[in-house]
């Protein structure tokens, strides 16, 4: 009988509890219930611990995720790195092609402007053995039609240019190579024109400026009427018969007056960077040494 009585008591307790809970749910379910404060009994003391445990849990989860996804991430990383390298290579190639394109445009410009000359590319294969001079060797020679020296009434000259301007001229040629005297060499002198006012000057190599890749501008004339100033562009004048008129030489970067001679001088920065010279272009006149063009017609008549 005792058992029966206990079961009845339990049933009653459960029924009361369920009833209380149903009532409580009814009261709590309304937003802004007056019984909401009861939640603070648990939430206030527990929330810091909840945060801590949640954080620990998150970290553990992340760690587990990292471990479990390490392989996938490694593969993805490798793939991304490959893609980044390919993109960088593509950018580099594009930049190189743009430079080559600009260079070719300038060379085409040479071909258009200097119709009497055949433009031949050449690689620089050796530099001067010593420290005093600036002569270099190119991989084009007699076999390519470069024949220096005097023949009959005329001397053959082969100006050498790079995409940006004048480099120098061929001074001797051999079967497969030629020696080029650069404009920064002490032995070089080029008749030049100041583009802005058409004044004739002389661009000379100078041993004290050679290592900086600069030239001296001489024969500027007396007085300020020479009108030469930093930033002025110089081109070949065509006088002297070695270089055709109109090849860019460089820009003036400094002017001054020699105290001893009272002469005005200027320092020119060549358009060509001689420290990084790899490819040059030899200008071969279409008129041969005897003054006859390719068809045999006398060009000098």
């Amino acid at each position: 009988m005792k058992i029966k009585s206990d079961a009845k008591k339990n049933f009653t307790t459960a029924a009361v509890l369920i009833l209380v809970m149903v009532v409580a749910i009814g009261l709590f379910v309304r937003p802004g219930s007056k019984l909401d404060w009861l939640g603070n009994i648990v939430s206030v003391p527990f929330s810091p611990f909840q945060k801590l445990f949640s954080s620990i849990g998150n970290k553990i989860e992340k760690s587990i995720t990292v471990f479990s996804e390490a392989g996938r991430l490694r593969d993805e990383n490798a793939k991304l790195q490959e893609e980044a390298a390919a993109a960088a290579e593509a950018v580099r190639e594009a930049a190189m092609l743009r430079l080559q394109n600009e260079e070719l445009k300038r060379i085409i410009n040479y071909k258009d402007n200097f119709n009497d000359y055949e433009i031949m590319n050449a690689g620089v294969i050796a530099k001067d053995a010593g420290n005093l001079f600036n002569i270099f060797v190119i991989d084009r020679g007699i076999s390519d039609g470069i024949k220096t020296g005097r023949k009959g009434l005329y001397s053959a000259y082969y100006p050498v240019v790079a995409d940006k301007g004048l480099v120098g001229r061929v001074i001797s040629s051999y079967a497969l190579s030629s020696k080029v005297l650069s404009i920064i060499d002490e032995g070089s002198a080029v008749s030049a024109l100041v583009v802005k006012n058409r004044t004739f000057v002389e661009v000379k190599g100078d041993i004290t400026l050679k290592d900086k890749g600069l030239c001296l501008v001489d024969n500027i004339g007396l007085g300020e009427e020479a009108g030469i100033a930093p930033g002025d562009l110089l081109e070949t004048s065509g006088l002297g018969g070695i270089y055709p008129k109109g090849i860019i030489i460089g820009r003036i970067i400094e002017t001054g007056r020699n105290e001893e001679t009272a002469k005005i001088y200027a320092i020119l920065e060549p358009a060509v960077d001689f420290a990084r010279l790899e490819t040059v272009y030899v200008m071969k006149s279409r008129i041969d040494n005897d003054g006859l063009d390719e068809t045999g017609r006398d060009e000098n008549r």
Partner: peptide, 11 residues
Amino acid sequence: RAGLHGSALAG
């Protein structure tokens, strides 16, 4: 240098 170069003393 066969007329290409002046002697360094020329300067």
